[in-house]
Design a protein around this nucleic acid. Structure first.
Lengths: 225, 225
DNA sequence: CAATCATTCAATCAATCTATTGAATGATGT
DNA sequence: ACATCATTCAATAGATTGATTGAATGATTG
């Protein structure tokens, strides 16, 4: 048997990337760079890092392809690199937020609040939809919502969620869903909701799974034939 | 002025997470665990790591919430943790793959990385089909696909591609093909895929060339005589 | 072309991470 | 209770990473 059976160079590349994201200073730098091209000095102002230290981190990010540079006079401007970088950062932040909420629950509350964060099964979802004890929240973009949705769901795309929280009742469990297990939208939504004191869980299989199960959808053309 | 103006605990949490993903051994372990609950010993077989070393890495992953454990007799079974972990792993692999392709292009050819990113030779296609490192995407209309296709190809006609993106894995190179060099379908497909962060190239000769070369086709009547 | 400014490089030390070893724990079967 | 097995813990040494310092580079200005 070989050393690492499932070895694939992609694991090494992935690890190098992840390691480069594994320092708060670099994440903060990336955060600022993602908001727009910036010179090193500006980044040091924003982050409070020393020039040499910031530069060193930036060199690393550049080597990893996470940022690119161009010269403008005596300044060197940093911008985000190519590829799905923001998607990766969003996924990272999303999971971190999810875990962060869990940790806070462990500290704040004793017992079973942690399972409030876990996803809700389809069976439980169906039951609680019957008894009208939940609010079903679709956090996908409006156009996807328009194409089809779970019965009774309301739509607040995740990027609008924070400023539209008032639309959600506080006396019911919020169940957020999106496109499925690979989709981070509902996890982001959970983080926002929990951060503002709502009680929320997610239906992690999302809309496609619901569809596959042959269950009713609203306003869709999927099961109309 | 504070040390880090834009400081947010989320950056620390994210960095901790990323650091935990920043080692190929842990990524390989996660890969195996993601495919199903496994005991430590099984993981050592799969990875070639020593027991203590694997255990140590697993402890770290557990602390980070990336895996969970349960006991079954004397074994301890590891499974993936809660939250959008697979989404994060997919995003990581996706970007690594993207960068990997770029790097290889820089090494292999001086000329046009864009060029290499676009089309894949028949030889490379065959090789990567063997090693199952790509997803072959047929973007022709369904009826043409039904008549005959490259082995293992999946069919998403280009006009449906945008709304069916979820069917495509993010951790493999997507190779799109259509009717051949004069056909624009696969080029359109590339644009859609790239725009959404997928790593994609095209097999520009398409189905007819494959046929001419006398290579296997699936479910076709072409080479049955 | 010298002075200046923004950034990078090089060298250092402290801190952290990794693999290995061997001992300790916890569950099982006799 | 004892022996056994799977896993974890603890301690160590070697490798890697991070912050700081001061010098070097590259572009601009007068």
């Amino acid at each position: 048997m070989t050393d690492v059976d499932a070895y694939h160079p992609l694991f090494d590349l992935s690890a190098d990337l992840a390691r480069m994201l594994g320092h708060a200073h670099r994440l903060v730098l990336l955060h600022h760079i993602a908001e727009g091209e910036k010179a090193v000095e500006r980044l040091t102002e924003l982050t409070g890092l020393s020039v040499a230290n910031a530069s060193q981190h930036l060199q690393g990010l550049k080597r990893a392809g996470l940022v690119q540079t161009r010269r403008d006079g005596k300044r060197v401007l940093y911008r985000l690199g190519n590829g799905p970088i923001e998607a990766l950062l969003a996924a990272l932040r999303s999971l971190a937020a999810y875990n962060g909420v869990q940790i806070r629950d462990l500290i704040e509350g004793s017992a079973g609040r942690s399972n409030l964060l876990e996803s809700i099964t389809r069976e439980e979802l169906l039951r609680r939809m019957q008894e009208d004890s939940i609010v079903l929240l679709d956090v996908r973009p409006a156009d996807e919502f328009a194409t089809g949705r779970l019965p009774g769901a309301i739509n607040i795309p995740v990027e609008e969620l924070e400023r539209r929280l008032a639309e959600l009742p506080r006396d019911k469990l919020i169940v957020a869903y999106c496109r499925g297990v690979r989709c981070v939208l509902s996890a982001d939504a959970l983080a926002v909701l929990r951060a503002h004191g709502w009680v929320a869980r997610r239906f992690e299989h999302g809309f496609p799974d619901w569809l596959d199960a042959g269950l009713d959808v609203e306003d869709g053309h999927y099961n109309s034939g």
